[in-house]
Each structure stands twice: as C-alpha cells, then as structure tokens.
Design a protein around this nucleic acid. Sequence first.
DNA 1: GAAATCATCCGAAGCGCTTTGGGAGCGAGA
DNA 2: TCTCGCTCCCAAAGCGCTTCGGATGATTTC
Lengths: 343, 343
Amino acid sequence: MNLKMLAAHLGLSQTTVSRALNGYPEVSEGTRRRVIEAAQLLNYAPNARAKGLATGRAMAIGHVIPISTQHEMMNPVFGDFIAGASETYLKAGYDMTLTVTGDEDEAQNYRRLQSKGNVDGIIVHGPKMADGRIAFLNGLRMPFVVHGRASKLDAPYSWIDMNNTDAFRRATSFLLDLGHRRIALVNGLEFMDFAFRRRHGYELALAERGLAPEPELMQSEEMTEPYGYRAAGRMLALAEPPTAILCSSLISAIGVRRAIHEAGLAMGRDVSVITHDDDFSYLSNGRDLPIFTATRSSVREAGRLAAEMLLRRIADPDQPPESRLLEAQLIIGGSTGPAPRKP
Amino acid sequence: MNLKMLAAHLGLSQTTVSRALNGYPEVSEGTRRRVIEAAQLLNYAPNARAKGLATGRAMAIGHVIPISTQHEMMNPVFGDFIAGASETYLKAGYDMTLTVTGDEDEAQNYRRLQSKGNVDGIIVHGPKMADGRIAFLNGLRMPFVVHGRASKLDAPYSWIDMNNTDAFRRATSFLLDLGHRRIALVNGLEFMDFAFRRRHGYELALAERGLAPEPELMQSEEMTEPYGYRAAGRMLALAEPPTAILCSSLISAIGVRRAIHEAGLAMGRDVSVITHDDDFSYLSNGRDLPIFTATRSSVREAGRLAAEMLLRRIADPDQPPESRLLEAQLIIGGSTGPAPRKP
DNA sequence: GAAATCATCCGAAGCGCTTTGGGAGCGAGA
DNA sequence: TCTCGCTCCCAAAGCGCTTCGGATGATTTC
C-alpha cells in the first residue's frame, strides 16, 4: 500500500492525499477526514526512505557505540542510557539506529554515517580524554551531543555530563570526615574521561587535607565484578591496608564487597565503601535503605536529556552549543562508618 | 557529494560509476579502479535512502524491544545480545535500528515498521508464553527471528533459544544428587517463556525423584538484585528453610548471596546456590574458578547466531523456518556442596 | 457585471540511486 | 566487404514521497 494506491482508491491526487496526511491547510476538512480514515483502514504508512529522500530529513538518530579491541565489552551504561533516550525519540517520532564500531578508522565511520544520510544527528558515547571524534564531528555538518566530555579539548561542542569530579571529591571528603586516611580508589579505565575526572576529584579532596595520593591505593581497569574483587583483595593484603574504598561502579563494588567478606572483614565497620551508582533499573542499590553509600545519578535520565538536547540542535542547528552538568546525589547507605581505631 | 557529481567529475555516466562501484562486470578494470579511487578521494558514499528506494532493500535490521509499563526496565540481556548481533551485521554491511515500544498496539507498531520500509527483517525479543507478535509477524511479509520461543504457539517460526528446561532440570538433579531435598526456585517473571520453561525443568527433576514442588519455595519476579535478596531472605526465615537455591539470573544470585551472608550462613556449605549465567561481559562469574555453580550460555553468542539466521532468511525468504537450540553448560563453582546434615 | 479573491485540488519535477534496454566501436570469421 | 559478437559505456525510467506552480470553480468586492 503506497501513496499512489491510496490516492487512486480515494479518487484524489497524490498531492492532495499527502497534504491531507501531513496537515497542510490547502485541503478541506471533509477530504482530510476521509483521507485519514482510509489511511487507517488500509494500514497505510508512508515509506520512510522515500519520505526521507524527498524531505532531506531521516527522522532518525544515530548512536555510535565504540567497542574497541582493547576493552571489548558492552558497557551496561548504554542499555539504560538508550532506554532513556528512546523515551524521548518515541514522543518525537524519531527512530534510533545503533552503530557498533571498532575504533579503527572512526573518521571514516562518521563520514560514512553522514553521507549515507540515514540519521539527522548523532549521540557520541564514551568520550576519551582527547577524543578525536569530537573535533572531527565539528567539521562535519551534522548535529551531535556527547554523553560526557573530553577534558583535553577546547573546541566548543554540546554535551551532557555528570559532575564526576565533584561527586568523587565529596565522597572522598565524606570518608575523610569519618576519620579515614587510607582511602583506596578502584577506578575505571583512566583514558576514559569520566574516570580521569573521578580520580581528579579524589585527589582534590585528599589535597585539601594535605594528603598525597598513594599509587598502591589506586587501581584503574575495566569495571567488572572480578576486577573489583581482585583489586580489593590485593589492597586488603597490603601491609597497611585501606580502611575505605571508593569504587567507580556498582558492579565492581559488588566484587569489592565479596573480597571484603572473604577477608573475614565487615563492610561498613572494618572497611567503608562508597561507589558510584548509575541507578540501573536491574541492579538497584536499594531505594529506601541503600546497601552501598553511593554517589547516584541516573544515566537513564541523562539519556532522556541528551536526546532532548540533540533534537533541539537538529531543529535549530545554528544555535551555539549547549551543555548540561548533572550533580550526583551523595546517598548514605550501610557501607560506610567511622574509621576503625588503630589496633 | 553524490553520484551525479562524482560521475561528472570523472566524465562518465552515472550508470557506469554505479556499476563500477557495485562490482558489475560490464565495466573495464581500468575504469573501475579510476572510479573507486575517485570515490575514496572525494569521500563519496552512496545515500542509503536513495539506494534503498531503488533496490527495495534497506540493509538494516530492526530490533524491537518491549518495555512494558508493568516491568519498565531495560533487560541487561539486550546489551550483550545486541553486541553479538552487531558483530554479524558489521561484517554483512547491515545497520541496526532499535525500536523501543510500550506493549500497547504492538500489531500497529510492527505493521508500521514494515510499511515504513526501513528494515529488511526483525528480531523479536523477550517472547511471552502466548506471544501475539509471532502469529502477527507470520502474517506480514517480513522475515523475523525470535530470541526465545512461545510455548503456547503451534505456528512454525524461526527461533533461537537456550534449552531452559533441560538446563534447570540438570541443575536441579545435580542438587538432588548432592542430597538436597528442599530446593528453592528464585525465578523470573513466569509469563515470560524462558522463566516458564525453567520452572518446568525444575519441576521435572523433582518429579523424577518423586518430590512435589512446594509453593513457599518458588518465587517469580523481575530479576533484580534486591529481588534476589528479598526472596532468599524470606525463604531462609521459613520454619524449614531451603538448603539450596536455584536462581534465574546472576544478578539476582548476587542478591541471594547477600541474604545468605546476612543470615550468618555460608554459601556452598549451609546453603547451595546455582544460578543461570548469561555470560555478560561486565559481570563475569569468573572464568577459571567460577564463584557460582551455574548453567552458562552466552547470550552474546546467541545474538550472533540469531543475526546470522535472520540474514539467511532475508536472502532466501521461502525457506522453511529454521531453529536452533543451544545447550547450557553446567559449570561447577564454589557455591554448591552436599546438603548439610539435619541438626 | 467584471475583476479580484479564496478554497480546493492537480500535474509534474525532483530527491539519489539502480537497472533495463540499447548503441558505439572494433577485431574476427565468412 | 559484410556481418557477428564482444566490450564498454550511456540515456532514461522508476522506486515513493514532497512541493512548486498552476488550474478550476465558487464567492466577494467594487
């Protein structure tokens, strides 16, 4: 069923039918009703490709997800972020296309994405500190929004980010206030911008109290459960083990907890733990009584907001770049307590 | 940069350029090389919409992800499944479009997806026991593959599934062999087909030993960590608590472990736990020494295979439906042991 | 009562590509 | 010399839609 057939069926021209369906004024109300009814009855929906060709708009957003060979894993963040974004797209009538790329010839990939012409805008995931994609996309004539930032870049661009630095600064300060002095950091990969900023916040807070960061208390890896377990295990076996651990993801925090238990210690008494919590739907940290003390910020919400921002940019591409910094909540759970006295 | 411009630039007709780029034989090797070089130099990539319009093929696959209002969560399975599928798409040059839908007017949604014409095939996620979508899609002229099955349907269709029944039957038998008699089931939502089958496998194994399932030992909910915690906590508080727990997901198993610890018991000694393990990249159950005894089957691999199957169906739509049943491995970890003697 | 206005509708071009149906040019066989 | 068969290329139609530029009556306006 296409426009031509529908028009023939109604004894009208394609022009009129098209206009009736798209709400143009130069068609009588009676005709419009008749057309809309027939379209519904015959289950007509315009061919998106043809429509795109004719209008120049694809009504679709591209999400480019880098899966590098170095860390070949599907970041669980994407799932919730995309769920949030798609809420926005659904309302606005946009589709979403996912491109999973290796990180070879990224430039090529994006250029291709543009000239293929099946997206109107792009959301960039997982920016590195010096992310080449951003400068490159700025060159292209394609609206985009970055989820996160690239610290080493000056060029303006649109982004939405959580205040990683401040979240981890506050969390560290909180532990310091509780008397902890040996505070470990179980971080994500630090060429990723968010992880770099978290480390920065952690070091800021230490510096504010005149403490220097100790290399043996800082780890940086892909944030899996086994990583949290190994990292915590290793640190707890040190001559001077940490009394508190700051963790970059709920998933590795679960590993940390496992290591603490296995060492015969109690979390929240012998060792305090604060984790960042992306508020995943399936891995809730507990609503009313959180298991972990955590810096919480909903990535789903970020997805929603990023999508909205991108749609605004598409509607009006000449506006100056927009940005939005979300603050994390510091939520007190059962995993923190005062530093244990020296034996 | 489009075909016309490229052709003009080369002093050739659009026809010849198009043929050169698409590998048709009726163009000399010299010309072909010249065309390809120019295309690369000028960064030409054919407009996907126009190409789609002309060929009738969209070179894209649609994944429809139901987010119902009842259980509004992004199943973590999707992430890894999609990562697997996109490996296949990448090789074959296909794009992937994601549609997140509520579960109202699904029929409408699929019909729309078809007539919009921007996908060549569909992967159906999360089938329910009596899933209306399948019968409906069979009516449409659109190839599709289901990840999972719909037990209550007779109509033939293509699917790929893990052998849920047998995995849980074997896991239960294994626990019975260890002497456990009170075995609990912490299952997913049982209107979902996979959960229904798992329960069935569990009951089969019990029946083989002449045991009847006990309602107080069976729970069914969305598989979150807090759910596992609550369910296990409740059961361990029973007058006759279970000595073993069978769990439908690694994430809720983590909650189960938390409840066990909190009850002052040791997992693997006081209470045995077996979980299903989808082999997520970020939540590994441990490669060499698994934490949990588990029935393992990689959902990423399932994604890869599902995509391959769908591409085959698209290439040759008149083949009879294809199906593939993956067996889970039963992997022995540290969470199981012989049933404790009655005190 | 003629001209101007308005409300509705239509024809046809064009979006960027593929593909059908030829058409030169050229060496080879009769 | 003529025809046949190749090789290499081209013009133009068509995919399904939007949209520009009219066309046709009916209705006002002066």
